[in-house]
Design a binder for these strands. Structure first.
Lengths: 202, 202, 202, 202
DNA sequence: TATGAATGAGTGTTCATTCAT
DNA sequence: AATGAATGAACACTCATTCAT
């Protein structure tokens, strides 16, 4: 989880310890059922210390979200920058997202389950970083349509959500499944197949 | 929302009023930020009255969930029973779900956003009714594959989740979108197109 | 417990059922931990019915107390009226009280344990009926002193309390004792012996 | 009441303030009629502070009881250790208990009236410390019988309860009496006289 | 910086009491 | 008289946040 660290003001070791602890605690007990004291204990710091690095409890999930999305965005952009074919970009995006989720399951739970509920998130808070990440998919779509690879009949706005929703659900189920009935790679490939076949020019 | 009513012990008018109020309140403020008193006020009953019909606060979202899923399940089964072609069943399932969501937006928010977070839901609580509903999609898949309409290369387990995730995300975005950039019917048709084209035998 | 019934306004069968139920419930769970609904259930009446016979919850222990004390007082007076010797009166009083307690253990618990705590009892409420009952002991004392049987050195006020305290404690311990290590008759006789020997003129 | 302090974890000043406040409040309003907020206010601490030192409301009377009994026990043992004659031991025990009660009237009320009702106390909770204290009386009895000072006809089990019950009742009445009609010393001496004369070998 | 004892506002739940039937 | 559904005031307890050290 330590990849969350990006900017400078945040480069303190304590900050990271708290973020990591929060991800662990929130993923296990849920945001609302977690106490600030739980996070402090997990991070091996005093309760008050958390308030030296975060404005309040709500600031924790927001920070987790922003840092994660930044990471997802840059990591994905980086991985896609040498791929030109929209088909392969799409394939890569899907497998990359699922593999990130697989490697950071606690974080994934927090992002998908806990944050989605935090109301502040879905309404008041503008998830700009998330939109930025989603935009990658739309850009792939648009490129594919421009190049005549994907059908024009599909609205990229809708496709973007279809793709993201499918990835998200697959990822969530996979994490919560006790005895995995399929590998994350298999899921990635099948999802890609459905989406690609479903959007390609006949 | 009054369709939630199913069994007898529950056929009281007060019970319905409370359920409806809870859906409204939870969808607006979120489960954790809603007070029992808020629900009571919205339902025009005393705080204590809620405890005559529900074990505790947690029992409210659970009841909402179970009744909704029952309704979704039976309503959908009923609508599909005269359709034989898997292709048309799939199309119907998608458009039906999205139209139900459109007609019950507050309920949809509670089901998709609030419940998903309630932790009890995603872990302890066995969402049997939800699985039952999901099974409809898997059955369509299996029938389609048997009849040679859908490709065998796709694992129905995965397809089921892909389809549900895509519907879910589309529905959620559509509800939260302020100025609707596409109609729910358009979304349904495009989603169907992607999924169907993506799974049909070439 | 049905001896509690004495005056007319109270001669209803329901009234008795409620009093009996209250004694049973209070003795088992304590006054403050008992709900009016518990008493109603035990009495096989509706909650509201209790309020047709009693002003409020506090009225229940008060009524139990008054009726019991009346009974104890009259029953004891009756038993003593044909005895003249203060020595035998004292012996009778002690054995009678202990045997009444033995026969009505639930009632005894309520009177000794629950009521003593009810604060209203020990302070606001004037336990006239109790004083009346206690007065019997004082009268025995005074008679004994007048007749030269009991020493004048003992203040009857104090003796009265000593005797009552000793009876009370013995009774309470006897009731709460799981495996009785002595019979109630033995206790009565020994207590009588101590008190009598301790007060008789040498 | 500051003698209640005994072990280390409890040596905090706040703990004592809360215990003292609880004794004061419970003695005035009764345990069940006292709110935790009342105790907090009396102790000049916040409501929540009480829960840093006590598990819950029920823990307050239990702690008061245990500390008091410890104090009574050690204080009495200490005072008796240089007295050898059972007669004088008995006299000392009685006068000591009554004088302790006189000096700590609020505490006495809590111990005698409130705790006796708490049901947890008389049933679930094993009042070991109380039994330990009571044992002092029994030991005096047994020694007196062995030395031929007290009659063998009296069962020490019973005598112990007779003595304690009498002390207890005297103490309670004395505290609750508005205009004291006798001094506590007079009561002690008279009680001693009755018990001693009642038990000595003729 | 870091601590953690102290705070006190906030809330789920209970239950004595009422009253329409 | 009798019922029991409905009420809503009351309260124990939690926990995010502060601040003296």
């Amino acid at each position: 989880m330590s990849f969350l660290l990006i900017d400078k003001k945040v480069s303190s070791e304590k900050y990271q310890k708290i973020i990591d602890a929060a991800v662990k605690v929130f993923s296990k007990k849920g945001f609302f059922n977690s106490k600030v004291a739980d996070v402090a204990k997990e991070a091996n710091v005093a309760d008050g210390t958390i308030y030296l690095y975060f404005k309040n409890k709500d600031d924790l999930p927001i920070s987790i979200f922003e840092h994660s999305m930044d990471y997802f965005f840059h990591h994905t952009q980086d991985a896609l920058k040498d791929i030109h074919c929209p088909r392969e970009k799409l394939r890569k995006f899907i497998s990359l997202h699922l593999s990130l989720v697989q490697k950071n399951q606690n974080l994934a739970i927090v992002l998908q389950v806990e944050l989605r509920s935090s109301h502040k998130f879905m309404t008041e808070y503008k998830p700009d970083k998330f939109f930025q990440y989603l935009q990658i998919v739309e850009d792939i779509m648009l490129q594919g349509q421009k190049e005549g690879l994907f059908t024009d009949k599909i609205n990229p706005q809708i496709a973007k959500r279809v793709i993201f929703g499918a990835i998200d659900e697959l990822a969530l189920e996979w994490i919560l499944m006790r005895n995995k009935r399929y590998s994350i790679e298999e899921a990635a490939e099948q999802l890609f197949s459905i989406i690609y076949e479903g959007m390609k020019v006949a």
